[in-house]
Amino acid sequence: MDIKTKALKKSLWVFHLSVGSCNNCDIEILDCLTPKFDIERFGMVLVGSPRHADVLLVTGIVTKKNVERVKILYQQTAKPCFVVAIGTCACSGNMFRFGYNMGGPLKNIIPVDVFIPGCPPTPAAMLAGITKLLNKVKE
């Protein structure tokens, strides 16, 4: 096991990226930080810059204005970087998929490792998804 994977196993730093969501998923992500769910138990911290991030949490349909920006942002992250699509919007486009400003879904733009569907997924579902990611890292 190389040093990168070893470090990743202990604590994943996540960066939250909203590209055309309705706030719901974002609020639930924030909820994960607060005392009831407390995501820091797993060593996860929200960071303010993509360059520090091990995981990108992406919410929302990717609007056309955001497509290029998501690509640039993914390039900026240090690899290996995992991408988690949170919410039905990021997974498949939800009811906006036939809209004229739909640039996504996310998997057509950057590689996605974990999908967490739901509108919005509950914090518990997010924790379950992230735990699966952790297990994947360990393998």
């Binding site: 969501s21 706030n23 992500i29 924030l30 303010g48 920006r69 640039i72």
Partner: peptide, 14 residues
């Protein structure tokens, strides 16, 4: 300035 800098975790929409 292209606003894809640090998305602040407390603010949700870009």
């Amino acid at each position: 300035i292209v606003p894809l800098g640090p998305y602040h975790p407390l603010f949700e929409e870009p």
